[in-house]
Amino acid sequence: MADASLFAIFMDGVFLKNFLVVQFLGLCSFVGVTKDVKSASGMSGAVIFVITLSAFVSYLLYTFILLPLRLEYLNTIAFIIVIAALVQLVEFIVRKFMPPLYRSLGIYLPLISTNCAVLGAVLLNVMNEYTFIQSIVFGIAAGVGYTVAMLIMASIRERSNVLYVPKAVGRGVTYAFFIALIMSMSFANYFKVIPL
C-alpha cells in the first residue's frame, strides 16, 4: 500500500471507505449528534481536528518509540492513552486561547476520546503501513468523509422534523438507520465510477 497515490488515499477515505456509512466507525455520534446541523458541524470540526493531530502524533510514536523498542503489541494501549491525553490537551489549549472556538466545540471534545473513528484511523494507518505524509492525508480524508456524512444526515433529519413519519419508524435512531441505509448505498457504490 506504500505506493498508493495521495489522491487515491484521499478519495478512498472520503467516499469509498467512508468511516461512517461504509466502515461503521463512529456510529454512536452518527446517530446521536445528528439531530440538528449545528451540533453535527461542531462535532465534525472537532473530529477533523483530533483525527489529523492524532494521525501525526501516533505515527511518530509508533515509528520512533514502539518499533525500535519492539513494543508493537502495546499499540492499542499506547494509542488510546495518546488520544485521550491529546483530547485533554486540545481542550485546555482551545479553552485558553480560542474561547469562541471552545464555545462551539467544547462539549464535543470529551466525547471524542471514545469515538471509534479516531482510534480506527490511527490503527488503519498502522495496518496499511502508510508513510508519514500518507498517514496525515488519510487522517484528513477520514475527517472530511466523517463531516460530509454527518452534515448530510443532520440536514435530512432536521428537514424531516416537519414531515409525517410513522411512529415506529420515526422513533430516535431507527429513522437515522433508514437514512444511513440509503446513504451507504450511494457512498459505497456510485462513487466507484470515479476512476482512480
Binding site: V22, F178, L181, S184
Partner: peptide, 10 residues
C-alpha cells in the same frame, strides 16, 4: 455489504 447491515438493524 454495509447497506445490508443498516437495512437489517433498521
Amino acid at each position: 455489504l454495509s447497506s445490508g447491515a443498516f437495512l437489517t438493524i433498521a
